[in-house]
Design a binder for these strands. Structure first.
Lengths: 210, 210
DNA sequence: GTCTATAGGAAGATAGAC
DNA sequence: GTCTATCTTCCTATAGAC
C-alpha cells in the first residue's frame, strides 16, 4: 500500500509536470506548433514518459483544458464567496472595477494566462467538445460575477441598467478583450492590470445607476 | 505589352486563388496545422506554383492578414459612408443594433469569417508585427463606428453614457465575443445573426440616453 | 508559370531495455 | 516509470522538366 501509493504519487507528479510544461509551451507557440518533445524537454522528461501518461498530444490538451476551466471557475467562485463573507461591500464607480478585476483576477497581469486562454478559445471554436467545456466555464464564471453584482447591488442600494447576468457577461468579455489588446500592445504586468481596470471602469460606471 | 500584361494578370489570379484557398484552410484547421499541400489542393495547384508565388507559408499568412484587415476596414468605412449619405438616420434602442450589425457586417452570419478572424487574433497575440496590424485594424474599425455613432446621435438628438469612442469599442468587442459564442454553440447563419443582434441590442439600449 | 520528382528533416507514436 | 532506439509518416523547400 505504501508502494502503490508512492508509485501512484510519483506518476501523478510526472503527469502534473507534463501538464504544467504543456501549458507553457501551448501558450507560447500554440498547440499545433508545439512538439511533444519540446513539452517533454520543458518538463524534464523524454517522450517515453510522455506516452506512458498520455495517449497523444490531443489527449493532454483536452486534460489541460479541463484543468484550466476548473481552476478558473473554482477560483472565481472562491473569491466571490470570500468577498461576500467579509460582509458589507461598498460599490462605487471607482471600486467596482477593482472588485471585478480581483474576482476575475486569474492572471489579469500576465501574458501567459491570456495566451493560454485564447489558445483554448480558438480550438474550442473548431471542436464541439471543447466548445461545450468553454461555454460551460464562461457561463459559470458569469454566473458567479452576476451573483456578486446582485449581492453588491442590494447591499449598496444601487442598481444596474441591465439584468446583472448581462452586466456580468459584458464585464467578463470586456475584461478578456482588454487583456488581449494589452498583451498585443506589449504591456507589462502592472500596466496590463491598469489598462484593463481603466476600460472596465468606464463600462461599469456607465451601467451603474444609483 | 499585351504579353506582359497577360502573364502578370494570370500570376495575380493564381496568387489570389492561393490566398482565398489559404483563408479557408487556415480558418478550418489553423495556420500551423495547415499544410502547404492542402492549400494548393484547395486552390487547384501544386506546390511548385505555390513557391513560385510565396516564399513560405508564413509569408502567405502575412499577406492574407493584410488583405483581411484592409477589406474589413474599407468595408466598414464604406458602409458607414453609405449610411450617412442616405441622409437622416433614426436611431432607437431597436434599430441601433441593426445598424451596428450591418456596419460591422463582414461575415456576421458565417462561421468562416469568425474562425479566420480569430485565427489571425491568436497569432497577433504572439507576433509583434501582426499585433500592430491587428490593433490598427481594430482602431480603424472602432473609429468608423464611433463616427457613425456621433453622426447618428446628433441627427437623432440622442446621446450616450460614454464617449462614442468607448461605446464603439464596447459594441465592436461585444459583437466579436457574441459571434464566438454563437459559433461555439453551433448556430447556423441566420440564428447567429439574431443571436448577435440580441446581445448588442441590450447593450446599445443601456448605453443610449435620450 | 506550373508541374513532377525528390532531397532532407521533423514529428508522432511504439517496443523493449533498464 | 522512464529512457533509448527506431519505425513511419508527413511536410517544407528545391531543382529541373515541360
Amino acid at each position: 500500500m505504501s508502494d502503490t501509493g508512492t508509485i501512484s504519487r510519483r506518476r501523478e507528479a510526472t503527469r502534473q509536470k507534463l501538464l504544467d510544461a504543456a501549458a507553457e509551451v501551448f501558450a507560447e507557440v500554440g498547440m499545433d506548433a508545439a512538439s511533444v518533445e519540446t513539452i517533454c524537454d520543458a518538463a524534464g522528461f523524454t517522450r517515453g514518459a510522455f506516452y506512458s501518461n498520455f495517449a497523444s498530444k490531443e489527449e493532454l490538451f483536452f486534460a489541460l483544458v479541463g484543468l484550466v476551466a476548473d481552476r478558473r471557475v473554482r477560483g472565481v467562485r472562491e473569491r466571490v464567496t470570500a468577498l461576500e463573507a467579509e460582509g458589507r461591500l461598498d460599490v462605487t464607480p471607482g471600486n467596482a472595477v477593482d472588485i471585478v478585476n480581483h474576482v476575475l483576477g486569474l492572471a489579469p497581469d500576465d501574458r501567459f494566462g491570456v495566451l493560454l486562454f485564447n489558445e483554448i478559445r480558438i480550438h474550442a471554436l473548431r471542436d464541439p467538445d471543447l466548445a461545450e467545456a468553454y461555454l460551460e466555464q464562461e457561463a459559470a464564471t458569469c454566473a458567479s460575477v452576476a451573483q456578486l453584482l446582485d449581492d453588491v447591488a442590494s447591499q449598496s442600494g444601487v442598481g444596474f441598467r441591465l439584468p446583472t447576468r448581462d452586466v456580468a457577461r459584458i464585464l467578463v468579455t470586456s475584461w478578456d478583450s482588454a487583456a488581449v489588446r494589452g498583451v498585443m500592445a506589449g504591456l507589462g504586468a502592472e500596466e496590463l492590470g491598469r489598462h484593463i481596470g481603466d476600460e472596465l471602469g468606464s463600462i461599469a460606471a456607465a451601467l451603474l445607476v444609483s
